[in-house]
């Protein structure tokens, strides 16, 4: 490998553990709307403004959920009602949709101050995913005895439990690296594992936003899709509205599309399809 390739691969590996918040576009929108109302916010106000805005517009459930909200339960909303700052959103990986050989991702809110790796693993092992088409590849009852960090490796003690499959190992690796920001994971005294290539590991299409069971107020539904391909088909039922989305940007392999739908109040199923594989979520518009 040339030095340039080594640098390139190292940067790509470090960057690939960085996840973005699922509500980022809504956060930006809330600020541009406010700006229009109030006039220019001086840039010198800088990060303090950003922090305040991010805290104010996030209106998400007070997690952790002992029971994940089902469709119809009040969950995420883009309404501008200020609430106290909740804890961070963590990415948790599952297998699905309706298949057991590829990973999908959900974001779950945890209590402020929680240890990210332990919380993410507790969700992964102990909480059903929001989407009933997703599942954990790990057997029920797997528990985390301890989490230690040495250098760039997080070691997870599962009391001797080992991954039941290669995808189960990757489910844990993607979840732990997303929470820790470190590239290596060891299960018990096993070998150091790292993320396998995205294209071999992740489901061909993800409906990132809205999440399953979300309640959206105001009729504007922000849709965020990622997939391995250049186009995705989006269907909204009822209404039989379908459109082709161009996927671009994102990581080199997994491209993304983002759009906003205006929908009258009701319950809808959004289905995205890439190369014959679909992911669907039910969303309530109020």
């Amino acid at each position: 490998m040339t030095p340039e390739e080594t640098i390139r691969r190292a940067l790509e590996a470090a960057a690939s553990t960085v996840e973005v918040r699922p509500d980022a576009l809504a956060a930006i929108r809330a600020r541009t709307r406010r700006r229009r109302g109030r006039g220019w916010i001086p840039w010198g106000a800088g990060l303090a403004v950003a922090t305040a805005a991010a805290v104010t517009i996030l209106v998400l459930p007070d997690a952790p959920h002992p029971d994940p909200p089902r469709p119809g339960a009040p969950t995420t909303t883009a309404a501008a009602t200020p609430t106290p700052a909740a804890g961070p959103l963590l990415a948790v990986y599952y297998v699905g949709p309706s298949r057991d050989d590829a990973l999908v991702r959900e974001f779950h809110r945890v209590a402020p101050g929680s240890d990210a790796v332990r919380s993410a693993l507790a969700l992964m092992f102990g909480t059903a995913p929001l989407d009933p088409d997703y599942a954990s590849a790990w057997p029920a009852g797997t528990t985390v005895r301890g989490v230690t960090v040495a250098g760039e490796v997080v070691t997870v003690d599962l009391g001797g439990a080992t991954p039941p499959s290669a995808i189960a190992a990757q489910q844990l690796v993607w979840t732990v690296t997303a929470a820790s920001g470190l590239p290596g994971v060891r299960i018990g005294d096993g070998d150091v594992l790292r993320r396998a290539p995205a294209v071999d590991t992740l489901a061909p299409v993800w409906l990132i936003n809205p999440q399953e069971g979300e309640v959206v107020r105001g009729g504007r539904v922000d849709v965020h899709v990622a997939g391995f391909g250049s186009t995705a088909r989006l269907e909204v039922t009822p209404g039989a509205r379908g459109q082709d989305l161009t996927l671009r940007g994102g990581s080199p392999a997994q491209r993304e599309a983002q759009l906003t739908l205006s929908l009258p109040p009701g319950t809808y199923t959004l289905t995205v399809t890439v190369d014959g594989v679909s992911d669907d979520h039910t969303v309530v518009v109020e």
Binding site: V20, A24, L25, I28, R29, T32, H224, R248, G249, G250, S251, E256, A257, Q258, L259, T260
Partner: peptide, 12 residues
């Protein structure tokens, strides 16, 4: 513009 540039470039 923000919506398009968000979809295409935000994560990177």
């Amino acid at each position: 513009a923000v919506t398009h540039l968000f979809g295409a470039h935000y994560r990177q």
